[in-house]
């Protein structure tokens, strides 16, 4: 029965070929540092799942943002876990994505034929920082607010367009409810869309080109 269903599915989707391409391929012998990429991917999934769960209660409006985060943290069953995972997952993801990049540099894995994989990786690194920056404001507590004040003021020194850039980013001269909603929109819709797209390309290329082998001395 299972085989029959599998055959039917394979006929309509060709999944066996895809499955074999993804899972049954052979990989050069590699060491533990090669798990950093998949670990980053794993924390990304944690962030997606916990992030979605947080949006069930979070309201991006100054008074309610704080009240809802407080409700999630202090009153909802396992709210502390969901928010805690998301909070620490963010730090973990930044750390892992940087270590992953360092590993790639050390093994020269950005070289032919993986140049484009590398460029998507750099974009993903920047995206991760953007996630961290926009997400930091959302709880709307003192730490969030003032870190964003400092963060956006730093950007103000950009020559010529600095002031305009900051005003556009904040939706006004000062941090306000408008800033909160646009940071929320970026953190929940814009950045994840880009992230999924880039991660998709990145993983496709990793599978297509294979993972780098550990270079031997003199190679």
């Amino acid at each position: 029965m299972a085989t029959k269903l599998g055959d039917w599915m394979d006929d309509r989707t060709g999944w066996r070929t895809h499955h074999a391409t993804i899972f049954l391929r052979k990989i050069p012998k590699i060491n533990w540092s090669y798990t950093l990429g998949s670990a980053t991917l794993f924390t990304m999934f944690i962030q997606i799942v916990t992030g979605i769960l947080l949006t069930l209660y979070y309201v991006p409006e100054p008074q309610q943002a704080y009240a809802s985060v407080s409700y999630i943290t202090n009153e909802l069953p396992f709210g502390w876990l969901i928010r805690g995972l998301h909070h620490w997952g963010a730090s973990a993801m930044v750390l892992l994505v940087v270590l992953h990049m360092v590993r790639v540099i050390i093994y020269g894995a950005y070289k032919y034929p993986r140049e484009f994989t590398w460029i998507t990786g750099v974009a993903l690194l920047l995206l991760t920082f953007a996630f961290g920056f926009t997400g930091y404001l959302l709880p709307w507590d003192q730490r969030a607010y003032w870190a964003t004040v400092v963060g956006t003021q730093i950007g103000e020194v950009t020559p010529v367009v600095g002031d305009t850039l900051r005003a556009v980013m904040l939706g006004g001269e000062e941090i306000s409810g408008l800033t909160l909603t646009r940071f929320y929109g970026a953190h929940v819709w814009v950045l994840p869309s880009l992230l999924l797209l880039l991660v998709g390309i990145h993983i496709f290329l990793v599978i297509r080109n294979g993972i780098t082998s550990v270079p031997k001395r003199g190679e």
Binding site: W32, T35, S38, A39, F42, T43, I46, P62, Q63, Y66, V69, S70, T73, W80, L81, R83, G84, L85, H86, H87, W88, G89, A92, L96, P139, W140, D141, Q142, R143, A144, Y145, W146
Partner: peptide, 24 residues
């Protein structure tokens, strides 16, 4: 590795938690 990371994150969430200071 994923499992170790998950345990570490749960431990951090449980023992350190995500702080929430006064409202902005």
């Amino acid at each position: 590795v994923a499992f170790i990371i998950f345990i570490a994150l749960v431990a951090l969430a449980y023992f350190v938690g995500a702080s929430l200071e006064e409202i902005a």
